[in-house]
């Protein structure tokens, strides 16, 4: 699933860090860029390329909500539910999204367009509440803004 160029780049990472495990994150960023998600086979491949065990790679990747697993929707909505966002109503926004998309947190819509996640701090407390859809931040959210964002995304499909 990984292109030959990506494979080459990942194996080059092996020598760039004193601790080989450090190469897992940059390697996974490459995976994200190229494939958009990970699965068992990709983790195995990355482990092989870096000379690490599959377990080491799987453990590290699971630590971050940032890396989506295979089966994730076209748009991965990650709503921050950490302190600042929570104080400014993130909880209500999550349940509003659940209602609107007719899915629960952690689920994907049947058409495979949206996946909803509640995540920890995304470092944008000044513009709370906020969420991230794929690589883009949407800030200072309210219900109306969410309606607009979802509608736009649906139009784009």
């Amino acid at each position: 699933m990984l292109s030959e160029i990506a494979k080459k780049k990942i194996s080059e990472l092996k020598t760039k860090f004193p601790e080989r495990k450090s190469a897992i994150l940059p390697a996974m960023h490459m995976v994200l860029e190229e494939v958009g998600f990970y699965n068992k086979d990709i983790l195995k491949q990355v482990a092989g390329l870096l000379g690490l065990s599959e377990m080491e790679v799987a453990e590290t990747v699971s630590f971050y909500t940032y890396f989506p697993k295979e089966g994730v929707g076209k748009y991965h909505i990650q709503v921050c539910t950490n302190l600042s966002c929570m104080l400014l109503g993130a909880e209500g926004l999550v349940s509003y999204l659940e209602e609107k998309l007719k899915i629960k947190v952690g689920e994907t819509t049947p058409d495979g367009i949206f996946t909803l996640s509640a995540v920890e701090c995304l470092g944008s407390c000044g513009t709370a509440p906020m969420m991230q859809v794929n690589q883009i931040y949407y800030e200072n959210l309210n219900r109306a803004k969410i309606d607009q964002i979802i509608d736009d995304l649906k139009m784009k499909k």
């Binding site: 065990s53 599959e54 377990m55 080491e56 799987a58 453990e59 699971s62 630590f63 920890e120």
Partner: peptide
């Protein structure tokens, strides 16, 4: 061995 691991966080 490495057949047991720690996943996720917090």
């Amino acid at each position: 061995e490495d057949d047991l691991g720690t996943f996720k966080r917090g």
